[in-house]
Design a protein around this nucleic acid. Sequence first.
DNA 1: AGCATCGCTCAAAGCGCTTTGAGAGGAGCC
DNA 2: GGCTCCTCTCAAAGCGCTTTGAGCGATGCT
Lengths: 342, 342
Amino acid sequence: MAMNLKELSAHLGLSQTTVSRALNGYPEVGEATRLRVMEAASRFGYRPSPAARRLATGTAHALGIVFPVERNVLLDPLFVEFLAGVSETAGRNNFDILISPTTSETEIATYGRLVRSGTVDAVIISSPAVDDPRIVRIGALGFPAVVHGRAGEGLDVVSLDIDNRGAFLQATRFLLQLGHRRIALVNGDERFTFAVDRRAGTLDAFAEAGNQPSLDLFSAGPMTMENGYRAARAALAGEGPPTAFLCGSILVALGVLKAVAESGLEVPGDISIIAHDDEMPAFRADQMMPPLTTTRSSIRAAGARVAEMALAQVTGEVLDQPHEVWPVELIVRASTAPPPVR
Amino acid sequence: MAMNLKELSAHLGLSQTTVSRALNGYPEVGEATRLRVMEAASRFGYRPSPAARRLATGTAHALGIVFPVERNVLLDPLFVEFLAGVSETAGRNNFDILISPTTSETEIATYGRLVRSGTVDAVIISSPAVDDPRIVRIGALGFPAVVHGRAGEGLDVVSLDIDNRGAFLQATRFLLQLGHRRIALVNGDERFTFAVDRRAGTLDAFAEAGNQPSLDLFSAGPMTMENGYRAARAALAGEGPPTAFLCGSILVALGVLKAVAESGLEVPGDISIIAHDDEMPAFRADQMMPPLTTTRSSIRAAGARVAEMALAQVTGEVLDQPHEVWPVELIVRASTAPPPVR
DNA sequence: AGCATCGCTCAAAGCGCTTTGAGAGGAGCC
DNA sequence: GGCTCCTCTCAAAGCGCTTTGAGCGATGCT
């Protein structure tokens, strides 16, 4: 087994106190002593036992993410990318990441367990629903948490979200300016805040321009290719088909593209497409045919920042911005054009 | 804070020993006492502190997965699905899952840290490379580990793999029987064992039939749509284009489908496609157009079994099968047909 | 010189659990 | 009754760390 503190201090002829303090950067220990301790520690490959430290300090040095085993269909590739972001900062600060598997029904209980057992110091809540009971619960518990998405109004839970509403406002505004009127929205599941916000942004643009949105062209569901395909088929087959599609993700856009192609229509000649791009490396908007116009925001960077915000709370640091909202860029590529004249 | 053992036993008028034993199912405690203890524990919502238990027993009650922050491009959606499987069994046994973020260079060190610090009781190694140093290392350490994929010969590390070689043997055999001769393989990165095995299986089928494979049609790379598309474009543009494609994943097949469509060819009339299907719920082979012929194996089920194997090692259970290899089914759907006559 | 002050170090007391070794009481046997 | 043998329970000793409160020279001030 690895060396423990007792042995190390014995080797050094110092007390455990001094060694521990030297290693943890307490000011009470002399610089010369500290150096000597540090050197010996790395020479012997000493690593304090996390369990012991945890027990003694009550801090876990870990971030918790509850992993919804069944619901993940919605998020699959996005989740990994987000996780990668969280990982990056967590790793840099020597924090572990604990994934707690759970089913929807027991999800709240799982959070409670995580919180109370002291296995983690802070919790990250991703893709919150509207009035998400998880957030309400965590808020009530007063436990360090960061929501990736929009947290309810009154709750003082730290959150980071991208400006979904602004993004879809911009995107829709752009389509309207190009002359599109019949615009289809293939949204994510509207129980989630991000989807609600996107819908709102889309409507904002119509209101701003004084145009009537065609609500029959709005749909919501899991952000998969399959659903994009299905929604687009349905929209294109209806009377008064759309001339443009707004898609919740690149995956959805892929499905839409396919449906459009099958209908013998062309992008962007007949149909314009704008998708929201979370920057999944496996699905790059600029590599699609045609390269997609997108509203872009790195979900990975968001993950990294969310982790930072969580760590800040753990260390008692005060965030000057408890609710960050990141702006989203509209990147115009080749999937948008004025609607066909007829 | 939650109640601790001391308080609970005080309430019950029993010693900590007895309460602890009652809760952990030791035989020394009377049935009546046990019931009384259990009842009180759940009534007070008592949960033993993981940290304390960890320290006392030296067992972490957690499984470790090292999460390669950069390499994940290859695996994105697959990884989540696998993780979901691991989660299921881990959760059922009250094991936590620790994700340790790492970059390729420090990956081995990360494993070492995980192993030595006692943060986890077992480690899961996914998508091993040929002669993967991680496995060699873990094998040398004698630490409980399960490899998802093929573990090197001599190393006695428990592993679970699907029969990649057999799968591609079957698939290729099927294509050969249909009359295809120029068969393209769009493989995963051939540093990984699964990809090597698939290539081998493909060659096996050619050898078995006494045919020459067209190695110029074989390619390898990340299993993304993009790469599938690129590989297929290249293959179709060359002289002596293929009449069939073998794809490493559904994603790859999607890219191939697109390239085929762009070349004005039809599936399966002009081109047959078989893909390996890991059963990602977001990309269902039977929902594609046309529904894809696949070699199918649930990566999620594999994750669940891998976790079981890891737990077994932790509890000292002996696995009668330290190297499981799961058979893979060939599911014939609508993307395969005899090659066009000309 | 005498006092307070500072810098450095230490012994010891937890943190909340498991586990060892032992004891108390009852049953079973001669 | 006296003995052993179970059954059930307990006190106490860790697990490896942090942290409190104290001690002990050396330094600075009057």
